[in-house]
Structure formats: structure tokens, C-alpha cells
């Protein structure tokens, strides 16, 4: 068979060929290998057609659809209510959804903690719609903990923006400056950092992004994909690899991390969170104040409840869950705030 343009077009019109190219499978491989057989021209034709299909597919993908989908999902939650409201004792499935649901919490140096608090509190600004800005205006490192258990350690001058209690489909952070990220694995909710024109997407890993005129993304563990504005193709970075983006030339280069110290995070992991015969409002207010999440409850009902509990483990939602169980209360999340209801003591 000669490599004729019409052959090419016939192949591009073949359903099975296109679907095999876009969604490779062992059966497809077998079928098309059998068709190619020992015919060298067929092999060339198949290779060319495959790259043509993939080129068109890539060209059509040149739209930030995942980000748009995330934004639409957030906006949609109002219209889905009350069906999507969450009650902790309603159903186990609901609990799982919200735990997986990647809200954020954050934790800062809590005065009265037990001294394990080397990190300082970043300056927090609560915007509308549950958006939070956290800035490190000091000279040391400052750490932001998120509801999903992820941590961001801000270098001096760095700033991050995100939803304090976002929806269940994505974890998005906007970064100015330099920060170290330790991301909890959650394949269903990609964690995406937008830094200038550089977009870094991860499924659970630790890495550093240093911002400025040039932006560096360096990976300590896991796998990270990096892309920049105007180019939807993503680079995959593995541990000890880095991508350096040059804002002036709008180009990106990949290399090995030479200065390994940028991949160390000197901030110790988890702060203590233990209570002994503590009035419930104190505990709730600690949670609320420390994690920049509004928690609404009837203070009169709960002020007589005294709690002895250790809330060191788990995500923000785990802690909330334990607290509510201890109080015999329930909580729900409405309009970017947590509402606790129960009979009190």
C-alpha cells in the first residue's frame, strides 16, 4: 500500500483508530499491530496518523478547562443546596465526602501551646466568600496548615490566597513569593499552585516554589507537573528536579536541584492541641481563631460543657468531628462557615 494522502484521511476517519490513539488499550494495540503486520509503509502511516490525532487533540485542549470547571463547581454549590448540605451523623458516605473535600484550615503559633511552636503566625486577611490571604511580613518562616492536612511554609515576604472552606473538586492556591509545599495525597482533588505565569499541579508531594522575576519549582518527593501561560503542555518533575521559568523570555528550563537546602523545611510538623476540662467555647474559639474558619454556635448552650480531648491528629474536619461527638452536637457548613448545633450541657 502506498502512503497516499487518501490513506491518511481514511485512517483519520476510522473510529477505532482515533479512539485507540486517544485511549490506548492492549486490545487496540493487538488489533492495530495485526493490521500493520510486516508492512513498513503501514507502520509509517500509523505513526504519522497517531501524531496527527494527538496534535489536534492537544490543540483543542488549549483551554484551562480544569480551572474553569473548579470555579463553576464552586458557584454551583448554592444551587445544589440543600441537597449538598452536610450533617456528620447523616451518613457515613457524607462524612467521607467532606473529609475528602479539601477545605483548608490553617494553624499558626498558638500562644499557650506547649512550646513546640517555633513557627510564627502569618498575617491573615479574610476576604468575602471565604477567601483567605496569608502573608509573611516577618523575618522568619511562617506556616499555613490546610484542612486537608497539607502545609505551606512561607518564606519572608511570601503571600498565599485560597478558599478557607472550598468545594470538593480542587485545591487551588495563589502564591506570591517563595514557599515550601507539603501536599496531602488526594488524586481526586489535584492541588494546583498558581505563581505568576507558572502553574504547578500535584497529587501529593513536597516541593518548593520560589517566585520573583524568574520562578523556580523544585521537587523533594512525589511528582509535579509544571506549565506556564501560553503553553498548555506540562513538564513532569521528579524528586530533586527543578524547572526554572524566565519571565523576561517566557521560557522554562529543567535541571537537577543543586542547592539541596532549598528542599528542606526547617519548620517542625504538628503543633499540640490538647484540652483538659476546658469549657467548650474556649475549644471552639481556639479552632475558629487558629484556623481562620468562622464557627457559629450558641455560646449559652455550650458554655457549661467541659471537654477533655486531644485534637492532635487528623485534618480540621477530623478535629471538628471529634469535638462534635464529644459535645453530642452536629455541624454543617453553610456559606463558608461552620455551624455547630446541639442540646448543650
Amino acid at each position: 500500500m502506498s502512503n497516499h494522502p487518501s490513506d491518511l484521511e481514511i485512517l483519520l476517519r476510522n473510529d477505532d483508530f482515533v479512539q485507540w490513539t486517544l485511549r490506548p488499550s492492549a486490545e487496540g494495540d493487538a488489533r492495530w499491530e495485526a493490521w500493520i503486520g510486516v508492512d513498513a509503509e503501514r507502520r509509517v502511516l500509523v505513526d504519522r496518523c497517531r501524531s496527527a490525532v494527538l496534535a489536534v487533540h492537544a490543540a483543542e485542549s488549549d483551554i484551562p478547562a480544569d480551572m474553569l470547571a473548579g470555579e463553576i463547581w464552586e458557584k454551583m454549590q448554592g444551587a445544589l443546596r440543600p441537597k449538598f448540605r452536610w450533617m456528620p451523623y447523616a451518613a457515613a458516605a457524607a462524612v467521607v465526602l467532606l473529609l475528602a473535600g479539601a477545605g483548608w484550615w490553617w494553624m499558626n503559633g498558638r500562644p499557650g501551646g506547649d512550646g513546640n511552636m517555633a513557627m510564627e503566625a502569618p498575617a491573615v486577611v479574610k476576604g468575602g466568600n471565604g477567601e483567605i490571604s496569608a502573608a509573611n511580613n516577618g523575618a522568619g518562616l511562617k506556616t499555613v496548615l490546610m484542612v486537608d492536612g497539607s502545609r505551606i511554609t512561607l518564606s519572608p515576604g511570601a503571600k498565599v490566597h485560597f478558599q478557607s472552606l472550598p468545594g470538593p473538586d480542587a485545591r487551588n492556591v495563589r502564591l506570591e513569593g517563595s514557599a515550601f509545599f507539603e501536599v496531602s495525597p488526594d488524586p481526586k482533588r489535584p492541588f494546583t499552585v498558581f505563581a505568576g505565569k507558572v502553574v504547578t499541579r500535584v497529587l501529593g508531594t513536597s516541593f518548593r516554589i520560589s517566585g520573583g522575576r524568574s520562578i523556580t519549582v523544585a521537587v523533594r518527593s512525589g511528582k509535579v507537573s509544571v506549565s506556564h501561560a501560553g503553553d498548555n503542555s506540562a513538564w513532569i518533575l521528579l524528586p530533586n528536579e527543578q524547572a526554572v521559568y524566565d519571565a523576561g523570555r517566557n521560557t522554562m528550563a529543567k535541571s537537577v536541584v543543586i542547592n539541596k537546602t532549598i528542599l528542606e523545611n526547617p519548620v517542625p510538623p504538628t503543633p499540640r492541641f490538647r484540652f483538659d476540662e476546658t469549657p467548650a467555647p474556649v475549644v471552639i474559639d481556639e479552632l475558629s481563631g487558629t484556623y481562620a474558619v468562622n464557627i457559629r454556635y450558641d455560646r449559652r448552650l455550650f458554655e457549661k460543657c467541659r471537654i477533655t480531648v486531644s485534637l492532635e491528629e487528623g485534618t480540621f474536619y477530623d478535629k471538628l468531628d471529634v469535638l462534635c461527638k464529644v459535645l453530642g452536637a452536629t455541624y454543617e457548613i453553610v456559606n463558608n462557615e461552620v455551624r455547630i448545633t446541639g442540646p448543650g450541657c
Partner: peptide, 22 residues
């Protein structure tokens, strides 16, 4: 009525639908 399944359905299909819509 499985909300988790709905969220998954959305995650899987919304991005390509957006690409098509645009």
C-alpha cells in the same frame, strides 16, 4: 442520589464539556 458519584461525574466530564462548549 450519591453525591460522591455526582462529584466524580462532574470531575470526569465537566472539563471536556467546557472545551467543547467553547
Amino acid at each position: 442520589g450519591d453525591r460522591d458519584a455526582f462529584a466524580q461525574l462532574y470531575d470526569e466530564h465537566a472539563p471536556p464539556l467546557i472545551v467543547y462548549g467553547i
